[in-house]
Design a protein around this nucleic acid. Structure first.
Lengths: 196, 196, 196, 196
DNA sequence: AACTAAGCGAGACGGTACGTCGCGTCTTGCA
DNA sequence: TGCAAGACGCGACGTACCGTCTCGCTTAGTT
């Protein structure tokens, strides 16, 4: 119900243009870097008018946030793997793989940067990206709690802060991404006193 | 010795102007937020010319980086407190206090954001801020290793990534700062298997 | 035919803004003098953006050159009056009247000065103003030649140099404009040996 | 008397620096054109400080006005040659020669342009250059009046306006200098009705 | 088939800040 | 006191994008 939202008169939104804009934004960002990307530049490369960009996205960061979903596989498996450690391992591997996907790390760094500058986008970035990933990890921790193999004194929230803290700090403040050693160290740290 | 530096001809740099610019930049940032701060605005409030700002700092972020040292006490105690846990506790308290200092959290968020946009500033931010704090924490971990109360399988680098990851992720991605519970949780996590 | 000109897409140029800019430029020049006029000032008074000025005119001198055509009647009568002397008289009176029109003398002095500084504007000033007036005077001389009452050994070009030389030298190097005595002297000089 | 004007204490003005500045100004003007010449540029080329330029000359145009006297022979012969025509001929040849001297025409055009922009310099340019040459020509005309071979109805002033008008209009508004034909035409014009 | 919305590419518009340039003034230390 | 060096306050430059606003055209329903 509530389907009475005006029966959609006039010309329909062009899906082709939408994709052209998202692609242009993503490519431009990888080529010249986010700060050099302009709405004018996106529109020019996409062969669209500026107005068309502004009609559907409030800022260029929002274009990129949507482009990310188009370009990279953002799905994280939260399937039950029998043990907390196995699921944590899968989660960390998935996250590392996402970061290693071409163009993803620079885009995410730019979006996190933009979230510091624009409070409105910050909220959209949290809702559209950050909290989805957080929810996945918290699901794993909570399932471990039910199952009984969760480290005794870790809350889901603190665990998420730790894990995402590591991932983000690496990409934002250092020039290294997560490697196998990091994943191993994190698993050992979070598992060692499980049974205590 | 070392006398090869030109004997300083011409008018000397005005220390008064330097302080006025740093103060103006810091105040403006707390008042209107970093993105709204302009070099023109800084110069206007400081009663200086734009050129004077550009003569000594490459970007407004660099002004703010230097202003931070002026406004906030950036010293972290790395004094030997007898145990790893005591020193970690002091470090975390110091860090939490710094973040809670008026204006510091917004400024640091802005500088980290800027470091994502400007590769040159990124390096200056790392050298002038990030690596100094990292070095302090690594000192603590290494002293613990010598002393023998360091958690067995933690390297200094990974420990730093974990600790700073938590601190930065909190301020960048959430709206909460470190509290006593976080400090306790982190200490317990890093100490529990010390003797194992 | 001649339809090869692109069919004019996008928003059209605002005639209202064009007039506002021309008027602002002319008024500012009479109020504070050409060197104190800035493109910023013109745009501000016209209520336009600087870019709009730069989009249509290469320099502030070009704005003024066009404003001149708007503000002052630049038409010179070259109608056949029966005799060279009568037409020369009319031409000199018209020229003196133009120079006496409010604001015109300062504007023309400024444009001639600018033509010395900027070789590109020099050409536009010649094409858009100087050679038009020259052509008018040369028309008069050539008609006199046909009619037979032209001073024997004066070419059209030299006559133009003499007449415009007098007019311009007066306004540029002295502080007096042409008066009736000057017009009489010039007519006598150029007519006396007509029949010889 | 009045010799009590302080016996000149302190270091004396450096004649070497004065010449270096005048030469630098003249050369720069011929090389890059007056508008591109800056006081900073003059000082840099002369190996002096900006302050030294400002101490002795109010504007760069004044430097150039003085440099002109240094670089070009500004003397005009007003010697009695027996007839008005002979003296006029000499005057016109001298003037044409001056204009043809390397660098002089561009410099004079620039100074005349500057005189339109700066009322104070205008006066100094008139006193230091224009009226000197005018005086020379008026001397010739007045001597002719005494001698009795002056064109009957020409005043000295109007004659000067005509002659200088021609010379200046040519250099300011056209791209041709005076040639032999012009001199001949002018002589014929001003002499033909001498005996009437 | 005609009418009425909307979407669209194009591009002009009012703004605002950029980073640079040159102005003319003011130390600073040496001659 | 003159001078070279050079920092300073100031203000305009011409450019780049911002986000908004026509403009004429295209694409769909709705009458």
């Amino acid at each position: 119900m509530d389907g009475a939202t005006t029966p959609a008169r006039g010309r329909k939104r062009s899906e082709q243009t939408r994709l052209a804009i998202l692609t242009a934004a993503y490519e431009l960002t990888t080529e010249v870097g986010f700060p050099e990307v302009t709405v004018e530049g996106i529109a020019a490369r996409a062969g669209s008018g500026k107005q068309t960009v502004y009609r559907w996205w409030p800022t260029k960061a929002d274009v990129l946030l949507e482009a990310l979903a188009l370009k990279a596989d953002l799905k994280i498996s939260t399937a039950d793997r029998g043990s907390f450690d196995a699921e944590l391992d899968a989660f960390l591997r998935d996250s590392a793989a996402l970061m290693a996907f071409p163009g993803v790390a620079p885009v995410l760094r730019s979006l996190m940067a933009e979230a510091q500058r624009d409070a409105d986008f910050r909220r959209r970035f949290q809702d559209g990206f950050l909290s989805k990933r957080r929810a996945a990890l918290e699901t794993i921790v909570e399932r471990a709690a039910v199952r009984g193999d969760k480290p005794a004194d870790l809350t889901a929230g603190f665990t998420a802060d730790l894990v995402f803290g590591l991932i983000w700090y690496r990409v934002l403040a250092t020039d290294r991404l997560l490697d196998q050693a990091d994943i191993t160290a994190m698993r050992r740290l979070l598992n060692e006193h499980t049974g205590e």
